[in-house]
Nucleic acid binder design. Structure first.
Length: 573
RNA sequence: GAUUCCGUAGCUCAGCUGGUAGAGCAUAACACUUUUAAUGUUGGGGUCCUGGGUUCGAAUCCCAGCGGGAUCACCA
């Protein structure tokens, strides 16, 4: 980020001064009463032309076509774009034509927020437009927006597409690429429709700690932080499962939470360090009940977002109407590899992995090995919503042992389009069993599995007081939204995905340079040479700098006094 | 982490086998009363990502770094 302003930014700042000189406040404080929106006018003007004889809109100027004393411009509000027609003698009825000739034509720019009052009409070419009778500047924009041109046939020119810039400056992205707003509108609908469904069942939305003294409930590396007053380490939660179960112990029948989880792991197109999960726990239910609930819920979500239960995702059409296919973990491996792993011990599994060409290491336990086979051979085949059920006990320390199949737990994961989007158990409520299972995790941790779960004594104490039979479910909201909006990267469904820090955001004022003795005239020259901070200056060779200043003076044809060599050396003192 | 592609004007991008840096849009000036990627004429605007190397000469070739994309791997 350079301290030097571009020519266009300087011009806009000058326009700002001229507006003030004309007595126009570029940033007025008053409420501007909007009575109409672009989308509504576009949709309804032809049927109800009488409703639009007096409208007030507000938004950004996105294009301008000036033709002498008449102009067209496009105003973009939160709902869309509306062409506006400005005629000099209409917005300037008196002798003074400054508002049109100077303010609109010269001092306003693309990106400025304006308000217009007028009436809706049809132009000769048949476009619904607003004939402006009153024009008000609402906010001056100081940086030029990338100009994206769109033709009638949908062709887009000069699109603002660089993902880095789009994600870093989402405000610019959504201004010039408003079609991406749809993703976030749908995201909002996914969450609100789920919330509405849960509330209708009588379940309660709750909030649980994000700062946790023990990071339990999942297997992942946490972010560490520290509380000063208590002088203790805290972790950003990797899951909220154990807190929600405490609330079931407390006597609530159904609790759910939408919230951010934080995992200090890799980033790619399906992982962001912070992500949104929805977890729900319902007392007296089991995982079979939960499967039916998920089917009902996701069908409602899909209908809310797209109108029908079928959602296009890549080359596939995903049908969220239940019931979904159910396949046990072992059966799914049998189905897609022809190998029955159900009776194998750890050594047998390790051998099988080798035969299938799957890399393993010594830290992997039985559960992990099964998971590796599943991930490599089965997962990508599960396109339509499919429940994978009955996982090996070693993988799942918080789920109840299977009612009839030894060695397994009552767990399912829902796979859609080859990816896991939900995970659910009949929750383990046997406090003694739970303690043993967590102790086994400690053994795995001792073997070097840095994802093994930590012991949480308070949670165990809660279970000892008694938790009713309960089924719990977690859904990755970001990945669900990716499905519902047909996006292949998580960054597209997050307003502000995590990015590397922007390079060289440091700014410094000219005063800092002047303070160490640089003549004011020479500061812009230093900036031009890429020296924007005192650190930059100190990092250069003084002799080289002295020579370069002379070179720049010549190159830029500057008519300013060359600083003496002693003076330049003094800057480095 | 691996492979690969990319980094040039405010934006989108050209720039061949090395030889003074280009277009469209945006921007500035003028003209123009229903245009719509408005149009016409005329201007201004560049650390060619950074640092080395090869060369008489590098945006271009080589090396390293930084940043980004894609694919794969890892990651419940």
């Amino acid at each position: 980020m350079s301290t030097a302003l571009s020519e266009q930014e300087i011009l806009r700042r000058e326009s700002l001064q001229q507006l003030r000189a004309l007595g126009i406040n570029p940033y007025p404080a008053e409420e501007y009463k909007v009575t109409a929106f672009a989308q509504d006018i576009t949709d309804n003007f032809n049927r109800f032309p009488d409703h639009y004889k007096k409208v007030t809109l507000a938004g950004r100027i996105m294009t301008r076509r000036i033709m002498g004393s008449a102009s067209f411009a496009e105003l973009q509000d939160s709902t869309g774009r509306m062409q506006i027609y400005l005629k000099r003698d209409d917005i300037c009825p008196g002798e003074d034509k400054t508002l049109y000739n100077t303010v609109f034509k010269k001092l306003m720019d693309i990106g400025d927020y304006v308000g217009v009052k007028g009436f809706v009409f049809l132009t000769q070419t048949g476009e619904i437009s607003v004939h402006v009778q009153e024009l008000t500047l609402l906010s001056k924009s100081l940086k030029p927006l990338p100009v994206v041109k769109r033709e009638e046939d949908g062709q887009i020119h000069d699109a603002f597409t660089d993902p880095e810039l789009r994600y870093r400056m989402r405000y610019v992205d959504l201004t010039v690429n408003p079609e991406y707003k749809q993703i976030f509108l749908k995201r909002s609908k996914v969450i609100s429709s789920m919330r509405e469904y849960f509330n209708k069942q009588g379940w309660m939305e709750v909030e649980t700690p994000i700062l946790q003294p023990v990071h339990g409930g999942a297997a992942a590396r946490p972010f560490n932080t520290h509380h000063n007053t208590l002088d203790m380490p805290l972790y950003l939660r990797i899951a909220n499962e154990l807190y929600l179960k405490r609330l079931i112990v407390a006597g609530f029948d159904g609790v759910y939470e939408f919230g951010k989880m934080f995992r200090n792991e890799g980033m790619d197109r399906t992982h962001n360090p912070e992500f949104t999960s929805m977890e729900i726990y319902v007392a007296y239910k089991d995982y079979n009940w939960m499967m039916a609930m998920v089917e009902e819920c996701l069908e409602i979500v899909a209908r809310t977002v797209t109108g029908i239960p079928v959602v296009p995702v890549g080359a596939n059409e995903i049908n969220f109407a239940g019931p979904y296919e159910k396949l046990s973990m072992y059966d799914s491996i049998l189905k897609y590899t022809g190998i029955d792993v159900s009776g194998m011990d750890e050594a047998g599994l390790r051998e099988t992995c080798k035969e299938l060409g799957i890399e393993v290491n010594d830290t992997m336990g039985k559960g992990k090995l099964v998971d590796e086979i599943f991930s490599a051979k089965v997962e990508h085949n599960l396109i339509q919503p499919t429940y994978i059920t009955d996982y090996p006990i070693e993988m799942t320390p918080l789920a109840k042992k299977h009612r009839s199949k030894p060695g397994l737990v009552e767990r399912f994961e829902l796979f859609v389009n080859g990816k896991e989007i939900a995970n659910a158990y009949s929750e383990l409520n046997d406090a003694i069993d739970q303690r043993e299972r967590l102790e086994e995790q400690l053994v795995l941790a001792g073997r070097g599995d840095d994802e093994a779960m930590a012991m949480d004594d308070d949670f165990l104490r809660a279970l000892e007081y008694g938790m009713p039979p309960t089924s719990g479910l977690g859904i990755g909201i970001d990945r669900l939204v990716m499905l519902m909006t047909n996006q292949s990267t998580i960054q597209e469904v997050l307003f502000f995905p995590q990015m590397r820090p922007e390079k060289k955001a440091k700014t410094v004022t000219a005063d800092d340079f002047i303070h160490i003795g640089v003549p004011a005239d020479w500061v812009p020259v230093l900036n031009k040479m890429g020296i924007n901070t005192l650190e930059d200056l100190k990092a250069t060779n003084p002799n080289k700098l002295y020579n370069d200043l002379g070179g720049m003076r010549k190159k830029l044809k500057l008519d300013i006094a060359m600083p003496s060599k002693e003076l330049v050396m003094a800057w480095f003192a």
